[in-house]
Nucleic acid binder design. Sequence first.
DNA 1: TACCGCTTGTGAACGCATGCACAAAGTCGG
DNA 2: CCGACTTTGTGCATGCGTTCACAAGCGGTA
Lengths: 251, 251
Amino acid sequence: MVSQRGEGETTTTPAEAADKERARAIPEAAVARLAVYLRVLSGMAESGVTAVSSEELSQAAGVNAAKLRKDLSYIGSYGTRGVGYDVEVLVSHIERILGLTRNHSVAVVGIGNLGHALANYGGFPGRGFPVTALFDVDADLVGIPVGGIPVNHIDEITAICLEREVSIGVIATPPPAAQSVCDRLVSAGVQCILNFAPVVLQVPDNVEVRKVDLAVEMQILSFHVARRADEAASVSVGNNGLGVDGMVIRP
Amino acid sequence: MVSQRGEGETTTTPAEAADKERARAIPEAAVARLAVYLRVLSGMAESGVTAVSSEELSQAAGVNAAKLRKDLSYIGSYGTRGVGYDVEVLVSHIERILGLTRNHSVAVVGIGNLGHALANYGGFPGRGFPVTALFDVDADLVGIPVGGIPVNHIDEITAICLEREVSIGVIATPPPAAQSVCDRLVSAGVQCILNFAPVVLQVPDNVEVRKVDLAVEMQILSFHVARRADEAASVSVGNNGLGVDGMVIRP
DNA sequence: TACCGCTTGTGAACGCATGCACAAAGTCGG
DNA sequence: CCGACTTTGTGCATGCGTTCACAAGCGGTA
């Protein structure tokens, strides 16, 4: 593996510099899995487990062992052949790669049912994501503390986000408000947005959006239900097609 | 395109039979996007739009036009060259492919903050997902209606799910309870599960699980924040590396 | 009717991700 | 000290998904 840039690596430790070089090359899919490994590993650490093999860890994380090793190889070689991985070491390296050594302050916009749930989502498991601001349009909510943090009016987004250095904005508003809220967050310098509103947000290139869409998840499941019912139907009814349409098949 | 099975296609309409054949071949990723297209199209239909081109629709859905056309081609050729797509036609075909013509009754387990939010998530946009049962371990909650549906005790899962023909189970419990709840749902014949608990669920092959993991989403965002900060650092500080570690760069 | 311009549908090329299989590298027992 | 055993790290092949580019097809127009 050849490092293509020789600059900017003198005052940081070699390990950190190497991490940063690698971070660029980690596939999107692998990043998501690393987060899962991290959680599993944290659980193991709490249970007093100090070492783990790729086989054990992969099973606990629900993935293929080879894939796990490849994922870990993206962040460096921190295992010991013939033995496995040191849990603590792995945890700290994954945390560093995922940027969890910084503190990412989070703002939640839209304090409805979901917003409440998010605000109370106790410090986000695996810590590092303090919710530091809540916003809503409803003047009646302003000032009321939710999960220990007082709600601010939505017009204060820019000022407060800048002041509290919010790096992640969570949108939990009704769909019609989402784009406007998003625009305000962006103009407040927020570069990462987690969107729960069922809307496709338009953002500048330098802003990262991830969306969690309950309706879409349900519909994907629905698709699989349908596909299964169809398969069951073609198998169980042979060549007459009875019961194929609109009827739930329970074998 | 050659149909490989000649059986079971006589009593359903040709269009439906063709749909079912195709359903097997639709890539997972495309299914997720079809759900998005469906929402956008539904919105257009309500606004009185009757026709749409791949270019317009793709922009509204936030994807590449070519990808959109390919996705639509998986469900058949329902566009008109030189004109575009009929909104109504597209809506009904996507609904059929996604299995939204059946009614999927949903059970939510774990009526905490998130469970409340889900139970109140009014009929799930794009309808077709009636929440018909709520469960919790807490005896104090039993009988209290949430979102119009009374909460049942968790021990009743099997009986009630079978009775109400629940096809999708939503797990919104604390992590330690998730696997046990999952097992109960499975034994009640539920084949599709949407899991909000940060736990890797073990299920038999015939059960489909999708997970929504807030911590993972946040950590993926965190990764991107970190990567960006690093890039900004290497660009802005040249070859001395100052400000690279732990410091947030705001250009 | 014949032509023109527009948009779809798709074959083909590319790139990313997954899984396999094995060499490299370490530990442990004798 | 050596050999056997275990487990990592990774080159390579395979498959899936995305993107490009263009022929095919349709409506409108003269």
